[in-house]
Write a protein that binds this DNA or RNA. Structure first.
Length: 255
DNA sequence: ATGGCAAGTTTAACTTGA
């Protein structure tokens, strides 16, 4: 079984790339972030034709998430229960016996800003909700665009970007508190070359110079860790014409 | 120290992203 996450930065623009990627990477579950479209504009027929069920939770202009799956999603939840949020950032469902949470974590913009405070509140709520979900669903994956680096190994220029957004101690502490629930960073369970990233700035020839960050993560529970055989970032779509700034991350698990 | 690219909306200059 394979599960993947990809921030597509506008599904309107990226739909042909998503379909092409699925054709060559027929994963069982794909979580999408940054749809940037309203629910009525979601291209459900295209995914149906490709053999996928879909759950979607869109919004005008910003945010928006979806879960594509070869088998139907059950027990679906939109956004974090009990956390009043006007932004569409979370879809949760049980798929093939795995509790799947796909999430677009807030960007935070700048430490000290209102958006950073929102990011911290959102992370607090996410942690407490995931704590509860884990108790009911031992087989759990939390994947998406976290907008947080674990440590300097996830940063192309740790000195220049020290304590800037995605790299602050506060954000990293939040990420570690998710790990503290009993989750594991699937990427770090395996060997990867240094400076393996999942996002590159559109500017400054970021991708060509590998000036990137690893901010798209797949966190897995103990029970899923025992089944996991691989976790890879697929850089290929970043080489497409008109690419998303993020690359997909793919988790492979056995029976 | 800043902007540099991309996408969407307000369609021309802005906001946001990361």
């Amino acid at each position: 079984m394979q599960l993947a996450t990809w921030n597509v930065n506008s599904l309107n623009v990226r739909l042909p790339q998503v379909l092409a990627w699925l054709a060559t990477n027929p994963v069982d579950v794909l979580a999408l972030q940054e749809l940037k479209l309203t629910d009525d504009k979601f291209p459900v027929q295209a995914f149906t034709d490709a053999g996928y069920h879909a759950q979607w939770f869109g919004q005008k202009t910003y945010n928006g998430v979806a879960l594509l799956s070869k088998t139907p999603a059950e027990n679906v939840i939109r956004n974090i229960p009990g956390f009043d949020d006007e932004q569409s950032r979370v879809l949760c469902a049980t798929i093939d016996g795995v509790r799947v949470i796909g999430a677009y974590f807030p960007n935070g913009q700048e430490p000290g800003s209102d958006k950073f405070a929102y990011k911290m509140r959102w992370l607090d709520a996410m942690r407490e909700w995931v704590r509860a979900e884990l108790q009911q669903h031992p087989q759990l994956v939390l994947m998406g665009d976290y907008n947080i680096t674990f440590d300097d190994a996830d940063v192309w220029d740790p000195v220049g970007l020290r304590e800037t957004i995605h790299c602050t101690t506060e954000e990293r502490n939040q990420l570690q508190s998710l790990i503290g629930l009993g989750l594991h960073d699937a990427h770090r369970l395996f060997e990867h070359p240094p400076k393996t990233f999942s996002w590159w700035d559109y500017r400054m020839l970021g991708f060509q110079k590998n000036r990137g960050l690893r901010i798209d993560h797949i966190l897995i529970s103990d029970a899923l860790k025992a089944r996991t055989t691989a976790c890879e970032i697929d850089r290929a779509p970043r080489k497409n014409p008109q690419p998303s700034d993020h690359a997909p991350v793919v988790l492979t698990i056995g029976a």
